[in-house]
Design a protein around this nucleic acid. Structure first.
Length: 429
RNA sequence: GUGGGAUUAGCUCAGCUGGUUAGAGCGCCUGAUUGUGGUUCAGGAGGUCGUGGGUUCAAAUCCCAUAUUCCACCCCA
C-alpha cells in the first residue's frame, strides 16, 4: 500500500463494507433526515468555506480552549499571509457569514443550518477523528427562551426520527458572564488552599477553567470535592439567567422533550452563556456525546459586530450518530438500486437495451449491461445490482416491441410494450 | 501530548519453539448456462506478511525504530 489517507480521516464508501461510519449512503441519510426536519422548522441552508482566517477561530472559539491551543490545522500558501485554519466547528463561521453579508435583512430571528467537515488535530480513537462531519443549527437574533427550547427540541426530533432510543439530554446553564466569573472565583477560593492535593490535571484546570475540576475522573479530586461540599453553578445564576433557564425547561416539558438537569455541564467553547446542553449515548465509547449546543449572545460582538446579535445553536457529529445507530442496530438505507435492469441476449440488441434504459431513466433508476448476457447471467447481474425489475432483450422482444419484466422479489412476470415502459415504471417502481 | 494492545488477500482471521513455493472462509472474476436470478459445482485473479533497519546460514515469526489503528487519560462532535 503506497499512500494512505491521513491519520484520523475516513473514506466514505459505496456499498456496505465495514461499519456504517464509513458508508456514504449512511452519511447522506443522516443529512437528509436533518435537512428535512430543520427546513420544516424554517431553517435555511447556508454553507461557509472549509477554511477561515485564524483570527476568527481564535476569537470565536476562544484562546484558552484546547481547540485553539493544540488542535488547529493551519493552512499556509506561498505568500506572506499569516495563515488560515481549517474550521474546527461551525458556529463562528456561520455568525461571521451572517454579519458579513448582512443577513439580518432576511428577518430576525433567522434560523440557519449547515453541514460539512470539521477539523481538529487530536489523537484518534473511536468516534474521534481529525476530519469529522457535523450538522449544525443556529438561530440568530433572539434571546427568547423559546429559541433555546426549540433548538433543543429540533435536535431531539432528529435523533429520535433516525430511530435512536438510548439518547439523553443533559441540560444546564452556565449563567451570564458575571455569574460564571463569580462561580469561578468561588471555586478558586475553595480549591486554592487544597492545591497541593489536587491531581496535576486539576492544578492546571484551577487557573484555566475551575469548573472542569468538578467532573475530574481522579478519585482524590472527587474525594476533595465531596469533602468541600461544593455548591453547583446553578446556585450562582443571576435572576435573569435563572428565569431564562426555568422558561426553557417549562417549554421542553410542555412539548414532551425529556431532559435531565446536569448542574456540572461545561461546554468547551468560550462563547457559550446561559443555556448549555449535550446529547449523550452510552454505546459510542469513552466520549459519549453525540452533540451539544448552547447560547452565545456575546459572540457577534467578539467577532467585531457593532451591535449585539444574540444566538443559540448546536451541532452533532454525524460519525457519532452513526456509531450510536450501529450500537442500537438501527437499520440504514443502502445506496441507490435501479428499478429496472436490462440485458441483451445478442450483441445486435445491445443498442436497443441502451435506448430503453435511457428512456426509462426519465422516470426511474435504470441500468443495463454493456455486453451480451445469457438469460441466467442477466438475472444474476440484475439481482446483484438490487434491481426491482429485470428483463432480457432478444429477437422476440425486438419483434413484438415489448419486454417481459420479471419482478425479482416475487418472480412475477409482466409483459410491457416498449412505449408503455415509462408509464409502467412510474406506477410500479 | 502521555500510557497500553493490535497490524498477514477487498473483509474476518489461521500460520506451533525462526526452516524451502504464506493459507482458509466470505467477497470478486470466468465457466457449467444462445431464453430466466438468489442454490450448487469447477476454475481464476488478488499478498513488497504496515514501513524501515538489525540479529541469523535462514525472519510473517526475534530485536529496535516508525506509521496507522483500537483502548484509556487530557478534551471535544
Amino acid at each position: 500500500m503506497a499512500i494512505q489517507r491521513p491519520k484520523g480521516t475516513k473514506d466514505h464508501l459505496p456499498g456496505t463494507p465495514g461499519t456504517p461510519e464509513i458508508q456514504a449512503a449512511a452519511h447522506a441519510h443522516i443529512q437528509h433526515v436533518a435537512a428535512q426536519l430543520l427546513e420544516r422548522a424554517g431553517a435555511q441552508f447556508i454553507a461557509t468555506p472549509i477554511f477561515e482566517e485564524a483570527e476568527l477561530v481564535q476569537r470565536g472559539v476562544g484562546g484558552s480552549t484546547d481547540i485553539v491551543r493544540k488542535e488547529m490545522f493551519t493552512v499556509y500558501y506561498a505568500g506572506d499571509h499569516g495563515g488560515y485554519v481549517l474550521r474546527p466547528e461551525g458556529t463562528a463561521p456561520v455568525v461571521r457569514a451572517y454579519l458579513e453579508n448582512g443577513l439580518k435583512q432576511l428577518g430576525s430571528p433567522l434560523k440557519l443550518w449547515t453541514h460539512g467537515p470539521m477539523f481538529r488535530a487530536e489523537n484518534v480513537q473511536k468516534g474521534r477523528l481529525r476530519q469529522f462531519h457535523q450538522v449544525d443549527y443556529e438561530c440568530l437574533g433572539s434571546t427568547d427562551p423559546l429559541a433555546d427550547a426549540e433548538a433543543i427540541a429540533l435536535m431531539w426530533d432528529i435523533v429520535t426520527t433516525l430511530g435512536l432510543k438510548g439518547v439523553s439530554i443533559q441540560l444546564g446553564s452556565i449563567g451570564d458572564p458575571e455569574d460564571r466569573a463569580a462561580y469561578n472565583d468561588y471555586l478558586r477560593g475553595l480549591f486554592t488552599p487544597r492545591l497541593a492535593e489536587l491531581s496535576e490535571d486539576s492544578k492546571d484546570r484551577l487557573s484555566r477553567n475551575p469548573m472542569r475540576i468538578l467532573d475530574s475522573k481522579s478519585e482524590t479530586d472527587q474525594a476533595i470535592i465531596a469533602e468541600l461540599n461544593v455548591k453547583p453553578m446553578l446556585d450562582f445564576l443571576g435572576a435573569e439567567a435563572r428565569d431564562h433557564f426555568g422558561a426553557v425547561q417549562g417549554h421542553l416539558q410542555a412539548w414532551g422533550v425529556p431532559f435531565e438537569i446536569d448542574p456540572s455541564i461545561v461546554r468547551g467553547l468560550d462563547y457559550y452563556r446561559r443555556t448549555a446542553w449535550e446529547l449523550h449515548h452510552a454505546g459510542i465509547g469513552a466520549k459519549s456525546a453525540l452533540g451539544g449546543g448552547g447560547r452565545y449572545d456575546g459572540l457577534a460582538q467578539e467577532l467585531g459586530a457593532k451591535e449585539e446579535v444574540p444566538g443559540i445553536g448546536w451541532a452533532f457529529g454525524i460519525e457519532r450518530i452513526l456509531l450510536a445507530m450501529a450500537d442500537e442496530g438501527v437499520p440504514f438505507p443502502q445506496g441507490p438500486s435501479p428499478a429496472l435492469y436490462l440485458a441483451a441476449l445478442d450483441g445486435d440488441y445491445i443498442p436497443l437495451a441502451a435506448a430503453l434504459t435511457r428512456q426509462a431513466r426519465a422516470v426511474a433508476g435504470a441500468d443495463f449491461s454493456y455486453r451480451k448476457r445469457g438469460a441466467g447471467q442477466a438475472f444474476k447481474e440484475a439481482d446483484k445490482k438490487g434491481a426491482t425489475w429485470a428483463a432480457v432483450i432478444g429477437s422476440n422482444e425486438a419483434a413484438q416491441r415489448q419486454l417481459t419484466l420479471k419482478h425479482l422479489g416475487s418472480g412475477e412476470q409482466v409483459a410491457v410494450p416498449f412505449d408503455e415502459l415509462n408509464t409502467f415504471l412510474k406506477e410500479n417502481a
